[in-house]
């Protein structure tokens, strides 16, 4: 059973590595959005340090949302999704495989890139480390929650915009605790509590969302 999971991850990562543009567009979008804020707000380092956690996190939110539409769409178009739905194994498990692959392709690069962008905002080493951790714990939750919306809007004309409308309200807790962790660190309170909550949310999402996504996929591919 877990062999299938591994195969799905391997398949999606292989495909992504063969057409790298998908990986890079998300990452470049993230970099550009983050780099635009100083141009809009002004180069004052004190202000930038203050808004950095929120900016990086909102950037990560938008970037990961941007990649969502593609999550099941390619499989839906070439018919492999039907084969996945007809697999004699729990669909939610295969969904977890898809989401893990999706996170490795679109989420992990953001996590790795974020500290570099944090330097633009003059964040301290400690804050950068906490930012790395918060993104590491938070972005998988974004992918898991986003998968529900991607499955619900599968193949719809207004898919992309609709995904944003459905998923952004659900992202709020992750945004609050993620940005909060970094902010608490910079203000000297310590981000431990925030990180624990992010971890707890990730566990909850891991348990609950694959079921909802699987149900949504069955409904959407009818």
């Amino acid at each position: 059973m877990f062999e299938t999971l591994a195969w799905i991850i391997r398949r999606d990562v292989t495909i992504a590595l063969r057409r790298r543009t998908d990986v890079f567009t998300t990452l470049i979008f993230f970099v550009i959005v983050i780099s635009l804020f100083p141009l809009g707000v002004g180069p004052d380092l004190d202000t930038l340090r203050l808004i950095a956690p929120g900016v990086v996190w909102v950037g990560a939110l938008l970037a990961s949302m941007l990649a969502l539409e593609q999550l099941f769409l390619a499989d839906h178009r070439d018919g492999t999704l039907e084969q996945i739905l007809l697999a004699p194994q729990p669909l939610s498990l295969l969904v977890i495989g898809k989401v893990i692959a999706h996170w490795l392709i679109t989420g992990l690069p953001l996590v790795i890139m974020a500290p570099v962008l944090g330097l633009q905002y003059d964040l301290s080493g400690e804050a950068l480390l906490v930012m790395l951790w918060s993104l590491l714990l938070g972005t998988p939750t974004l992918s898991l929650l986003g998968a529900i919306a991607a499955a619900l809007t599968l193949g719809l004309r207004a898919g992309g915009v609709l995904v944003a409308l459905l998923v952004l309200p659900l992202y709020i807790p992750v945004l609050i605790f993620g940005a909060g962790a970094v902010e608490a660190t910079t203000s000297g309170l310590g981000g431990g509590a925030h990180l624990s909550l992010l971890g707890a949310i990730l566990l909850l999402a891991l348990l609950g969302t694959p079921l909802a996504t699987a149900a949504a996929l069955r409904v959407s591919s009818e």
Binding site: L166, L170, I172, P173, G180, A216
Partner: peptide, 27 residues
């Protein structure tokens, strides 16, 4: 499909509302 997709979204929303409310309060 609209019926069922909407229903799934509502159930996901209702599970999330307490978490959202709690996080907003904390924030």
């Amino acid at each position: 499909r609209a019926d069922r997709a909407g229903a799934i979204l509502l159930l996901v929303g209702v599970v999330n509302i307490p978490i959202i409310y709690f996080s907003v309060k904390w924030w």
